[in-house]
Design a protein around this nucleic acid. Structure first.
Lengths: 130, 130
DNA sequence: CGGTATCCTGTCGGATACTG
DNA sequence: CAGTATCCGACAGGATACCG
């Protein structure tokens, strides 16, 4: 399909990090960002508490931090409604939605290969002499 | 093409983490794993020092830790040659290579949208009153 | 409601030194 | 060469309390 030639050997190898996708990984796959993006995409525009409830175990502090980061990166938009009580809504942006195929690919890989990983782990752990 | 329906809203929402791809992210996108996988795929079978040199700034301790994890997950294979001096070779497995389309997708997303992220960051930082 | 402030702990990873 | 052992500092993230 697309871009397969990007995943091949070439004489390059950047001196700093020999991995061209490192920046994307930092943006999209830092801790908590995938659950947040996933929830926002799956359930549409949501308020802070809704996110807090759906993403179990996340603390408000961390949720705020990650939402700010995602907003700064343009993946999520924040709308403040000056009411009493105040209402804030978060929504995934077009840029954020452009990650959809990637997430779909991840999901597909998971269902196809996750059990294989599980088996490998079991074999590794079960092998004596490590 | 494939698996797009997995990235849609449905009544599910797992209680623990509302994000089905969380396990994959842990496996593939934990720190240093992408540079390692990328290098192994790009340059083929390599010795420890080769990896160490190509992945700048990584320390031998951390490289060992991550390689062990990748080996346990079945993404990388380790071959020990009992010689003097000893020789160890690391190679990406078939399971590891099955991540190729995903990495290609990431690369493509980067070239298509990374500048947009950069612009969003600049706008965000430049907007007063935050 | 939607956060922020403060404190505190656990863990990741760096530095250094050493070994089969 | 290919690691391991040990020490250590930084900081992400949890718990708790408080505010507009």
């Amino acid at each position: 399909m697309t871009g397969d030639m990007t995943w091949t050997a070439s004489g390059s190898a950047d001196p700093e990090n020999a991995c061209p996708i490192a920046p994307v990984v930092d943006i999209v796959f830092s801790r908590w960002t995938t659950p947040i993006l996933w929830t926002l995409n799956a359930h549409g525009r949501q308020r802070f508490v809704e996110l807090e409830r759906r993403i179990a175990r996340i603390t408000p502090k961390v949720l705020t931090q990650r939402l700010r980061q995602l907003e700064r990166d343009g993946l999520v938009s924040r709308t403040y409604h000056p009411e009493v009580p105040p209402r804030v809504e978060y929504e995934i942006t077009g840029l954020g939605r452009s990650l959809a195929p990637l997430f779909a690919g991840l999901t597909e890989w998971a269902s196809a290969h996750l059990d294989e990983v599980e088996r490998a782990r079991h074999d590794y752990d079960g092998t004596p002499g490590r």
